[in-house]
Design a protein around this nucleic acid. Structure first.
Length: 533
RNA sequence: GCGCCGCUAGCUCAACUGGCAGAGCAACGGACUCUUAAUCCGUAGGUUCUAGGUUCGAUUCCUAGGCGGCGCACCA
């Protein structure tokens, strides 16, 4: 007697019921869709007949794609060669012709037809065939042959059930047109359902699997590129007593044992630069940052950032590095540098255009930010559609102009450099012009992709910048930097001249994959908790 | 946070100015031993997102809420 809940239908004791029911009653309840009840019945029939509906493994000779490739490599053009394979996958389609049946199996990156001929199968395997459903995982062995219609197919001699599905997958029907093009009919396309049930999305939509494989290639490519140049990959704290390195509202949490407030990092910047003080002269980190801001097509509250820092370098070095890194990695991952994003052609072929920030604002907004009065800036910002121009500070006005008039038009990759220094609390002043910072951003397809600068390494100057930020914070700007004394202490030990950059990895993947929504490139994007299925 | 749009069977979608809630796929029964969006015959499947309201009658109109999509604002 453990005091578990009782099934409202059959009275069986269960640790935890669903809708008041034990598993047996729940899967058989009339509220379940018919396909679920049918499958559960088949599951019990399988068990009764001595089949193992959830196997422990299956040795294959080839992946589905591998079988096809091996066949092609060994093929001499003669018909019906005897090449035996043992393969496994999900049943994606099933056409039962009575005495025989065809099915397509799908695995992570392949698809292969299998052919069941009842008088070839053992009685036991033939009986199993009747209990299969779309979505089930099976393993088969047999010889490859080509059907009359020319499709490579396994003639199944042995059939093994690997995992029974109790819920129908939202499979569409795939048509191969005369041109060899694949058209999916029906299918699973509702964005909300796809994000909430990403497992079903992945299982059913191979292009989604391909997209995430591309993402992985890109991230691996970034690592390989940096590792080859002597950068050390490191991990810095996600839970931080002070947040900084960017302007954003943080997530807050609490540590019980220390009884202290902690923040989820909004950037890696300050911890990474401390490592250069410690003579780890080239470091990078690829990890999640967290910003407690709204969610839209290009923003998810947790997102992946690459930050890297290189000693004895400045922002010019970073321009070279960025251009080479992005073109190398995307070139390898995508096979081309001519991409299409949000309906526009984006050609990443280097060299990228480099333009001073001030010049772009002058060109596109008609305002010289070096000489314009506050009033002129305000007027221009209002013309650009900013109703709240009257309440904005000078740097905010300039930024509003840039965002509204300049950024959307920068389709080809553009290195925008020399930002106003007020907007850049961690960047060194520009040599020869202390009103500017040695900072650049890369804008592609109208979106900011990279932010980089010659890192500020003068502790006294950094102190003043922190003080300005602190004043802003006291004035109610929640996104202003906190005053980080430990970081100042680190700078006092001597940060070498350093170039650093941050790149939004999700956006890089969006660009590479031609996706218009960040949620398409994040496996589990944030959603409001929804109803249970 | 604001505005617009959406939510109907497991999936993809219909249902006119308010009048018995439908189709295709999937499922189930049957036929078919080279099919491929297989085909043919038959069957079953619904809290129309939720709660109120108007009405003889609401998937449809109204109010509030939930979730989502798109846009704006925010995100230096």
């Amino acid at each position: 007697m453990t005091g578990g809940e009782l099934c409202a239908s059959c009275g069986a004791e269960v640790g935890r019921t669903r809708d008041g029911l034990c598993p047996e009653c729940w899967y058989s309840a009339p509220e379940r869709p018919k396909p679920v009840r049918d499958r559960f019945e088949k599951l019990r029939a399988l068990e009764a007949a001595g089949y193992e509906p959830f196997a422990y493994g299956f040795e294959v000779t080839d992946s589905l794609r591998g079988a096809r490739e091996r066949h092609q490599a060994q093929s001499t053009g003669a018909p019906d060669e005897e090449m035996r394979v043992r393969v496994a996958g999900r049943i994606l389609s099933l056409r039962d012709l009575g005495g025989s049946a065809f099915a397509h199996l799908g695995d992570r990156d392949g698809r292969l037809q299998v052919y069941f001929k009842r008088n070839v199968l053992s009685e036991r395997d033939a009986a199993l065939l009747d209990l299969l459903d779309l979505g089930d995982w099976i393993g088969v062995s047999g010889a490859l042959f080509t059907t009359r219609t020319g499709e490579l197919t396994v003639r199944v001699e042995e059939l093994v059930l690997l995992a029974k599905t109790l819920r129908p997958l939202p499979l569409g029907k795939e048509e191969v047109t005369g041109d060899g093009e694949r058209v999916v009919h029906g299918g699973f396309s509702d964005r909300e359902s796809r994000y909430r049930q990403r497992y079903a999305d992945l299982a059913v939509n191979p292009e989604v699997r391909r997209m995430f494989a591309l993402r992985t290639r890109i991230v691996s490519g970034l690592r390989a590129f940096l590792d080859a140049r002597g950068f050390l990959e490191v991990e810095t704290p996600i839970l931080q007593p002070l947040y900084g390195g960017a302007a954003a509202r943080p997530f807050t949490t609490h540590h019980h044992a220390l009884d202290t407030r902690l923040y989820l990092r909004i950037a890696d910047e300050l911890y990474l630069k401390r490592l250069l003080v410690g003579n780890l002269e080239r470091v990078y980190e690829i990890g999640k940052d967290f910003r407690n801001e709204s969610i839209d097509r290009t923003h998810n509250p947790e997102f992946t950032m690459l930050e890297l820092y290189q000693a004895l370098a400045d922002y010019r070095t970073m321009m070279e590095l960025t251009e080479e890194m992005v073109t190398t990695v995307l070139g390898e991952a995508c096979g081309t540098l001519r991409l299409s994003w949000e309906g526009r052609e984006v050609d990443l072929t280097p060299p990228w255009r480099r333009v001073p920030y001030r010049e772009l604002v002058l060109e596109e907004a008609g305002v010289d930010i070096a000489s314009a009065s506050d009033g002129e800036l305000r007027r221009a910002a209002r013309e650009a559609g900013r109703e709240d121009a009257a309440s904005l500070s000078r740097p905010a006005l300039v930024d509003a102009l840039f965002s509204a008039k300049v950024e959307p038009g920068l389709v080809a990759p553009t290195i925008v450099y020399d930002y106003p220094i007020e907007m850049s609390p961690f960047a060194k002043p520009k040599r020869g012009d202390p009103t500017l910072a040695e900072r650049f951003e890369v804008v592609v397809g109208g979106h900011e992709l990279v932010n980089a600068f010659s890192e500020l390494n003068d502790p006294v100057d950094q102190w003043r910048r922190f003080a300005e930020q602190a004043a802003r914070r006291e004035a109610g700007d929640e996104e202003a930097q906190g005053f980080d004394e430990d970081y100042l202490r680190a700078l006092e030990y001597g940060l070498p001249p350093t170039g650093g950059l941050g790149m939004g990895v999700d956006r890089l993947v969006m660009l590479a994959a031609g996706q218009d929504a960040i949620r398409e490139v994040i496996l589990y994007p944030i959603l409001r908790p929804g109803e249970e299925a």
